[in-house]
Computed example of a mutant assay.
Amino acid sequence: MSSSDIFIGETIGTAVLILLGGGVCAAVTLKRSKAFNAGWVAITFGWGFGVLTGAYIAAKSGANLNPAVTLGLAIDGTVKWVDVPLYIGSQLLGAIIGATLVWVAYYGHFKAHLTDPEIVGRDTGQEGMVDRAAAPAAGPVLGIFSTGPEIRNVVQNLATEIIATTVLVLAILTQGQTKGLGVSGTGVLMTAFVVVGIGLSLGGPTGYAINPARDLGPRIAHALLPMPNKGGSDWGYAWIPVVGPLLGGALAAGIHRLAF
Rank of each mutant, 00 (worst) to 15 (best):
S61Y: 10
G185I: 10
G236K: 06
A74S: 13
T124G: 03
L65H: 12
L30H: 05
G187W: 04
A105N: 10
V82Y: 02
G199A: 06
G23W: 09
G94L: 11
L52E: 02
V69K: 07
P228T: 02
D123C: 01
R132H: 03
T165S: 12
I151G: 00
A192M: 07
D116E: 08
G232S: 00
A223Y: 09
V243Y: 01
N153Q: 14
V104N: 04
L114G: 03
N157M: 05
V155R: 05
D215V: 05
L170H: 09
I198G: 04
P241D: 01
V141W: 01
G89E: 11
T206I: 03
V24P: 06
A171S: 15
F49L: 15
E150A: 08
L71V: 14
T166H: 10
V82K: 15
L20A: 02
D5H: 12
I18S: 10
L52G: 08
A99G: 14
V120W: 01
G22I: 11
G94W: 11
S61E: 10
G197T: 09
W40E: 03
T78A: 14
G143H: 06
A15T: 12
P205V: 00
G232A: 00
G77I: 07
F193Y: 07
Q126C: 00
H113E: 00
N37Q: 15
L158H: 03
V28I: 14
E150Q: 11
S201W: 03
V194P: 04
I6C: 07
I240N: 02
